[in-house]
Structure formats: structure tokens, C-alpha cells
Design a protein around this nucleic acid. Structure first.
Length: 431
RNA sequence: GUGGCCUUAGCUCAAUUGGCAGAGCAUCGGAUUGUGGCUCCGAAGGUCGCGGGUUCGAGCCCCGCAGGCCACCCCA
């Protein structure tokens, strides 16, 4: 009922929400630093062609979910908000000649992505992704390393029950023949295909494989598997990826129906799922190898692999699984609140708080003109450890320091305040 | 883009067959004038999502729209 509200499919991350995101972003930053990735920022929007050519014109993401920006001039430029980070990062790789850097170039970014589709819980028009890309290494060892990194993110974030699904979707040498085989197969059973599936047959056969239509289950189970139709190189690559994953102890499952929605993927494709939760937003992240993308965007043929993890969904699942965890992260109160016996004396409160802040302490000054009792009550609700009480003793150069948890109180000279509070925090509360 | 369900205070929810919009929590204030957490008292807070229609009268019935949710589509 407010006159203005956040646009459809977007939401405000209130401090408690933001605290969870902060934690996840710090984890991502720490993990990628350990693995040797460097942070990069690319624009939130690109020329539409970057996405159309990179992701593929006939993908859902480009066809119906691209968040296009209306041009303001006749510059003949068409822009769109990024629906995923990889295309922009690869564009930057080409633009800045990163092929002259030591390969592979290992990059990471975290930020909002935009897709114009119909919102649902865990599905937004603006959502956040933690993204990792390694460009310039043909694998297969790095494929396993990157899957392990993604898996570790969930583990260290505390998400329970994450499943790693992997598959190989071949490359230009073997995929076309497989697609032809698969198309023939479904054409042979055309009568059994639901209308919507029939429509997709000519446009993107691979999508039929992961259809959730119950009528498709039997048909799909018997469908030719791409892993049986890989060329020798792709097959060897896939076997090696699996061997590396096993060696690293990453639990994974080969999922023959796993095909990713973006055209640029080759060979290794993987997704992270969380099982056993309500709703359909079970995909927490995914990625794959994109050996053709750099060339597609104008660079020299260069292999690459990466993944994106949906932070909104991780936070959602974390809240479902853990509960109080998120709230606790956001509830850091000040070390002390400066209150005054004289409701009108905001000067003393502010001056003392300023001195303590200059000394590096977290201090709130209660600037409301209300009686002392209310100020102390407010300090308690804030979760403050101490209240610094300014009263008539100030003329004798003294203030009261009250330990709000213990209920004890003693007299301190303002000059000693910062040292006393810092020491008390260190001893009482480990910091 | 398709279909279904839902929308009352900041939050969680009440409101009889259509008959004067309420509670709890949260917020703010008070309980003889310098000491919080408990308790008591009080205040503020609502175009009942928005717009039409039916009716003497609509939070309640009908239509449209918006938003949320669910299932598709698809993904994060």
C-alpha cells in the first residue's frame, strides 16, 4: 500500500539481509584469494550484441529475459543489463589483451545480475552472483579445481545437502552429430511429445532432455545419451575431469540430462543443487567450460571455464536450514552508548563519544532529549556493553561507566575512558 | 509469456449471514523530577493493495489492474 515500492522482482536488502550477503561475499573473496583469483569489475550493462552473440540468440535468457535499456539517442547503440557475468568478463579479456598475461587469467566478481522474467521466491529480476572464471586453460584439471572451489563455497558457507551434478555436452566436433541423433530419436516419437516439447524440438533439442513433464520421463530415460556420443577428445577430457574430482574427494553425480541454458558451453557442464527443499528454486549455482566464447567475442581462440553462484538462493536456503545464524550476524551493538542525566545536554554526550570514536571505539551518542532511564533502556536494546553516564560529576572531571550486562558501575576520569573501555572489551568479550 | 491462490497498522494476524476496523509484538511517552532489562498506564500508527461496479450500506459480493506466492517456462 505504500505509494512507491521496489520494482517488481527487486527487493531491498535490509541490514539483517545485507549482513548475510556480506558474510557470503567475504567468504567468496577469501576463497578466491586462496585459489589465486583476482577481483574484477565490469559494467552492469553491455552492448546487447555481447550477450546476443555470446550467450546465443535463441536462448531463453536472450530471447525473453534480457533486460534491454531504451536508447536515449540515435547512436545506434543498444544496451542491456547483464543477465550473467561471463560474457562481460570475456569481452574485457579480449578488449584489454589479457591473452598477453600469464595464462590462465583467473578472475572473480560478485554483483547484481538482471533477468526480466516472472518473479518467484528465490527468483528475482535483480539477483546477486558470486562468479569465478579461469580463461586460457584447456583443462581438464582446472575444471575439477573450479568445481571443487564452488563446492567448497557452499561447505564453508554452511549450506547442507549440496549436490554436484556434472556432465559433458561435447564440442563442435561431436555435438552436431549427437544433436542430429537426438532429433531423429524424438521425431520417431513425435506423437508422444507434448505440444510445448514438440515446439522446442526444432529450436533446441537438448532442452527436451531436462524437461520436467512427467510424460517425457520414459522417453528421456531411453533417449541417446551424449556421453555415449562424445568424440574421443571430449570423452577423454570428461573421464579426466571425473578422475580429478574423485581424487579431490568432491562428491558428484553424472547427470546425462544436464544441459546448460547458454549456448557458449562446451564439454564440462555442472550445477550445484540443494535437495529436499520446497519450491523449484533448487539450483544454487552452475557453470561450465566455454572454449568457443573468446573467439566468438572477437579474441583469439581461447578456452575458458567458470561458474556463477546465486547468493540470494544461498541466503534463502541458509535461512531455511539455519534460522538464527543470519540474524546473529547482523546484531553487533556498539561497545558503549554515551548517555546523560541532563536530557538537554547533547553537547557533552556528543563530545565524549567523538573522543572515544577518535580512539577507534564503536560508540553511539544518545542524542535524544529524554530522561536518563529511557536512554539506558535504549542502550540495553542496542546490545551495548557499556553506558557512559554523564552527570554532575563532570565538573569534578568524572563520568560513570556502567557495565550493562553485569549491572556494575564505577567512576572514571574522561581522560582514562578510552583506555578503560578498550581494555574491558578485550578482557570481558574476547573482542 | 501461460494457469492458479493470496493482499487488513512497521511485523504476525483477527473482524458473525454485507451493518461503527481490532489484538499481540515493535515504536514513542508516562508511573512525584540522576540509573535499563520485569511490570503497569497511555499515545501514535490504516485511502482495509489500487480503480470501477452491485447495495440503503462493502474489509467481506462482482470486474479490471498492480504486487506477492505456487505450478509451468527457465534458471541463479
Amino acid at each position: 500500500m505504500p505509494t512507491y515500492r521496489a520494482p517488481r522482482g527487486t527487493r531491498d536488502l535490509l541490514p539483517d539481509d545485507r549482513a548475510v550477503f556480506d558474510r557470503l561475499m567475504r567468504l567468496g573473496a577469501d576463497l578466491t584469494r586462496r585459489y589465486g583469483y583476482r577481483p574484477i569489475e565490469t559494467p552492469l550493462f553491455e552492448q546487447t550484441a555481447v550477450f546476443e552473440r555470446g550467450i546465443g540468440e535463441v536462448t531463453d535468457v536472450v530471447e525473453k529475459e534480457l533486460f534491454r535499456l531504451a536508447p536515449r539517442t540515435d547512436e545506434s547503440e543498444a544496451w542491456a543489463l547483464r543477465p550473467e557475468p561471463t560474457a562481460g568478463i570475456v569481452r574485457a579479456y579480449v578488449q584489454h589483451g589479457m591473452q598477453t598475461w600469464p595464462q590462465p587469467v583467473k578472475l572473480t566478481t560478485t554483483g547484481p545480475m538482471f533477468r526480466y522474467d516472472r518473479p518467484q521466491a528465490g527468483r528475482y529480476r535483480q539477483f546477486w552472483q558470486f562468479d569465478v572464471e579461469a580463461i586460457g586453460d584447456p583443462g581438464p584439471a582446472i575444471d575439477a579445481e573450479i568445481v571443487e572451489l564452488g563446492h567448497r563455497f557452499y561447505t564453508e558457507a554452511g549450506v547442507q545437502g549440496v549436490e554436484v551434478l556434472v556432465n559433458s555436452i561435447g564440442d563442435p566436433a561431436c555435438r552436431p552429430a549427437y544433436i542430429a541423433t537426438l532429433t531423429d530419436y524424438y521425431r520417431g516419437h513425435l506423437a508422444k511429445l507434448p505440444p510445448t516439447e514438440r515446439d522446442r524440438l526444432e529450436r533446441n533439442v537438448l532442452r527436451l532432455l531436462d524437461s520436467k513433464d512427467p510424460d517425457m520421463a520414459g522417453l528421456n530415460a531411453a533417449a541417446p545419451r551424449i556421453t555415449d556420443h562424445l568424440c574421443e577428445a571430449c570423452s577423454a577430457h570428461f573421464e579426466s575431469v571425473k578422475a580429478h574430482l574423485a581424487a579431490l574427494g568432491v562428491p558428484f553425480r553424472v547427470e546425462p540430462g544436464l544441459v546448460r541454458g547458454l549456448d557458449y558451453y562446451t564439454r564440462t557442464a555442472f550445477e550445484f543443487y540443494v535437495a529436499g527443499r520446497e519450491g523449484q528454486q533448487q539450483a544454487l549455482g552452475g557453470g561450465g567450460r566455454y572454449d568457443g566464447l573468446v573467439a566468438l567475442l572477437g579474441g583469439r581462440p581461447t578456452p575458458g571455464i567458470g561458474f556463477g553462484l546465486g547468493l540470494d538462493r544461498v541466503a534463502l536456503v541458509l535461512a531455511e536450514q539455519g534460522g538464527a545464524d543470519g540474524a546473529a550476524a547482523g546484531a553487533e551493538g556498539p561497545l558503549a552508548v554515551v548517555v546523560s542525566a541532563d536530557p538537554d545536554d547533547t553537547v557533552s554526550r556528543l563530545r565524549i563519544a567523538t573522543e572515544l570514536r577518535a580512539a577507534g571505539l564503536r560508540v553511539r551518542a544518545d542524542l535524544a532529549r529524554r530522561k536518563l532511564g529511557r536512554q539506558l533502556e535504549s542502550a540495553g536494546k542496542d546490545g551495548a556493553h557499556f553506558a557512559v553516564i554523564v552527570g554532575e560529576e563532570l565538573v569534578d572531571g568524572q563520568v560513570q561507566v556502567r557495565d550493562l550486562q553485569a549491572g556494575t558501575q564505577r567512576t572514571v576520569a574522561p581522560g582514562d575512558l578510552a583506555r578503560e573501555l578498550a581494555r574491558a572489551e578485550a578482557t570481558h568479550h574476547h573482542g
